[in-house]
Design a protein around this nucleic acid. Structure first.
Length: 434
DNA sequence: TCTGGGGTCCTAGGACCC
DNA sequence: TCTGGGGTCCTAGGACCC
């Protein structure tokens, strides 16, 4: 018999995290925006009730925000990341094995507990008491069924936020109530195909012939069917998997119309990407830089540039990454007579990014026979990181990304960001007032 | 005027090899 | 007219997740 797995997730996590520190946000409609204040990515129950959709662009919500007094917040990832860490700390006192799945969801090994329901309820209470974040728990013998249990618990408050589907009869009774689109791993495209052959509930999907499932939705759907039948196909994984890639991409606060501005944004993104590499003790073997015009403004001239270059030797050095990003940016810039980096067509670039692949732990970096030059002293990057850790991110940056005095037009908008309550003492209102 | 960011996994098809 | 078979590796693109 497969062991019981629980999944615990936070309700409207970003909104819940904000509410922990600002009681005025409780009981009223609240939305948290994506980077650049673009779309609603988290909504309180009250906001959902007003019909605010996930991912809806904020400019389309203007009337609703005004008419219903919806509170609008920019995303504050520093706060959410820290709150997430606290929630996981509590989980770890309730299960010997915790697999962090996302910022607001973790799988927990629930084997060995005699009364799983009671255990889950005391965990739920503890998380709320110690962090202020409300959570819901689904339990079953496969991850997919646990996610179904969680989904049911979310939608039916009568169970008090905890549902155990380990029992065959319970699954039998409740799976007809889960729509295929609400099953983990079944997205829009698959829903459409399943609907065409009359499969609409989790119970119907479970009873579908596996061969047909594979043919319709590849091995992924075949696994989902097996998981719904209680056969685990997705293993419990409490070790952090090795990263395959890493990206830093942003929409610009204002359109970027010249090479210098695009390069300033790419410099900032490459800088951040290098920081991430060093945090994880990795080096990268290749870098892709891209920038493109807005995909929504189809009447404007469009340009999409994406170039990849090798990092040789593999590197985690900010300067190396910026140099590579510059090579890509130059190679991708629209060619014109005269000044090679002018923009006579009036392209308005909306987004730029840096992606790193071929990642390896620094210790495993292969030696190279022909260096392009002497390697820089890692002490420089170390000093950079120490200073930025001590005085706050971006205290020390490269001139290439521009200076605050001159204005960073490419920098994202974040007009409604709350204080980083748990990680920046200087942002606490009471400290600021002194 | 204004539309997110960062991941994973799978498949098909081409290049290449013997 | 008739033009092998079987393997690996890589990449692009699709689907999905939160």
């Amino acid at each position: 018999m497969p062991k019981p797995i629980a999944i615990s997730d936070s309700a409207n996590f970003y909104v819940s995290a904000e509410r922990c520190f600002d009681p005025a946000l409780r009981g009223v409609p609240v939305i948290v925006l994506s980077n650049n204040d673009g779309c609603a990515v988290a909504r309180s129950d009250e906001a959902k009730a007003l019909g605010v959709k996930m991912g809806e662009p904020v400019f389309k919500l203007r009337d609703k925000i005004r008419d219903h007094g919806i509170r609008v917040l920019s995303s504050n990832y520093t706060l959410y990341g820290d709150m997430s860490r606290r929630v996981v700390e509590v989980y770890e006192t309730f299960s010997p094995n915790v697999e962090i799945y996302s910022i607001d969801e973790s799988f927990l090994d629930f084997s060995g507990f005699r009364d799983r329901d009671a255990h889950a309820r005391s965990m739920k209470t503890a998380v709320t008491r110690l962090t202020g974040i409300p959570v819901r728990v689904g339990i079953a013998r496969t991850k997919t069924l646990a996610k179904c249990a969680n989904e049911l618990a979310k939608r039916n408050p009568i169970w008090g936020g905890v549902l155990d589907l380990c029992d065959i009869a319970a699954a039998e009774a409740l799976l007809p109530r889960v729509a295929v689109g609400d099953i983990w791993g079944v997205g829009r495209a698959t829903v459409r195909k399943l609907d065409a052959i009359g499969i609409r509930s989790a119970a119907e999907l479970r009873d579908m012939p596996v061969r047909q499932a594979r043919q319709l939705g590849t091995v992924v759907l075949e696994r989902t069917v097996a998981e719904l039948r209680g056969t685990p196909c997705l293993s419990f994984n409490d070790t952090v998997p090795t990263r395959k890639g890493l990206a830093v991409t942003r929409s610009a606060g204002e359109p970027m119309c010249d090479f210098t501005t695009v390069m300033a944004a790419l410099t900032a993104h490459a800088t951040r990407a290098a920081e991430k590499l060093r945090t994880h003790g990795l080096v990268a073997g290749s870098l892709t830089a891209f920038y493109h015009t807005s995909r929504f403004r189809t009447e404007d001239p469009t340009w999409r540039a994406s170039r990849t270059t090798q990092l040789l030797p593999m590197s985690q050095d900010t300067f190396d990454l910026i140099a590579a990003a510059r090579r890509c940016a130059e190679a991708g810039w629209p060619r014109c007579e005269g000044d090679a980096f002018a923009n006579p067509w009036g392209f308005r670039f909306a987004k730029a990014g840096v992606m790193l692949t071929d990642l390896l732990p620094l210790a495993d970096r292969p030696a190279t026979l022909f260096h392009p030059g002497p390697e820089r002293d890692p002490a420089l990057m170390e000093a950079l990181d120490v200073l930025n850790a001590r005085f706050g991110r971006k205290s020390l940056t490269l001139a290439g990304e521009g200076t605050a005095a001159k204005g960073k037009s490419w920098d994202m908008k974040a007009g409604h960001r709350s204080p980083r309550w748990t990680t920046r003492i200087g942002e606490l209102p009471i400290v600021r007032a002194r």
